[in-house]
């Protein structure tokens, strides 16, 4: 329904909207992809058609041209940090801006590399290039995880919120604490291991991999499992310990879910911890690069 009558007889026309979701990658029929491919082709043409002597480098005519284009692009690309904080549809929608950001950023691989003339060394010029490539590759990684992980994240969450995940673990901790009160010291110590030596998140590596080899809960569960198995072979197991084992296993499952969540969220976030600071470092290196070229012209 394109329009409807309002009280007072005024007809309000809704803005036409796409029904299907269109991501930033395919925005406007991949307009920016085409523009970037064209730009890259142009850069390659300039590189191939000019024949600087004795060999191509940043100081030739084509080198200065590509360098100027590249530097202006880098400055514009870094402005997305400002643009995304301003909510507006003009002059570009944020989606259009993001689309351009991604594709123009990727075309910098071609423009930047040709600007170097394939000459790299231990100097401030190559530093700029390396930082630029780190930014681009981290951004590429960001696009890949943004395309793949949200669906997995949602499936893993299974309608539970983050506080609910934590609360489930805390509840199990309280139950364990209570259930362990009548136990002897050895068994109580095992439960303490689960309560006190078990971190949900961990350090950066544990977050990225989701692997917690020293997890106290896991060790406690394995130990209690051994005791219970032994008791089962020799007769009737201690019901209190069986109860503890049941709780430890439930906690293990709750931890696994939370940690999968953390792993995917970390993977979704980590690239920005590289992309953004290295972009700033790149802008600094660009200033040093350009300034030093003309200081020692």
């Amino acid at each position: 329904m394109a329009s409807r009558s309002q009280p007072g007889g005024r007809a309000v026309t809704r803005a036409p909207r796409d029904i299907a979701h269109e991501g930033f990658l395919t925005h406007a029929r991949s307009r920016w992809l085409k523009i970037s491919l064209g730009l890259s082709a142009l850069a390659i043409a300039v590189y191939v058609l000019t024949d600087p002597a004795p060999r191509p480098n940043g100081g030739s005519f084509a080198g200065y041209l590509l360098g100027t284009i590249g530097a202006l692009m880098i400055v514009w690309l870094s402005l997305i940090g400002l643009r995304k904080r301003i909510i507006t549809t003009k002059p570009f929608s944020l989606k259009a801006w993001t689309s351009a950001h991604v594709y123009l950023g990727l075309s910098l691989i071609v423009i930047g590399t040709l600007h170097t003339g394939f000459q790299l060394g231990w100097n401030v010029h190559s530093l700029s290039y390396v930082l630029m490539m780190i930014v681009i590759i981290s951004g590429l990684y960001g696009i890949i995880v943004y395309a793949r992980l949200p669906a997995q994240l949602s499936a893993n969450r299974n309608e539970a919120t983050q506080p609910q995940m934590l609360e489930a673990i805390r509840t199990l901790d309280r139950q364990l604490d209570t259930a362990a009160q009548p136990l002897d010291k050895a068994s109580a110590d095992l439960v303490r291991m689960s309560l006190e030596e078990c971190e949900v998140s961990g350090n950066l590596w544990e977050r990225l991999t989701g692997r917690h080899p020293k997890c106290g809960n896991k060790r406690a569960r394995d130990a209690v499992q051994d005791i219970v198995s032994q008791q089962m072979r020799s007769g009737k197991p201690d019901p209190a310990l069986t109860q503890i084992l049941f709780l430890l296993e439930r906690k293990d499952a709750a931890l696994a879910q939370a940690r999968r969540h953390i792993r995917m969220k970390t993977q979704l976030e980590i690239w920005l911890y590289i992309h953004v600071p290295v972009t700033m470092a790149l802008l600094a290196a660009l200033i040093a690069h350009i300034l030093s070229v003309f200081l020692y012209w």
């Binding site: 983050q162 934590l166 961990g202 953390i262 920005l272 953004v276 972009t279 470092a281």
Partner: peptide, 15 residues
């Protein structure tokens, strides 16, 4: 726990 704030310096600090 759920964001990298707990494991890394902030982006601004690193920048």
């Amino acid at each position: 726990i759920f964001s990298l704030r707990g494991a890394m310096p902030t982006k601004r600090t690193m920048a």
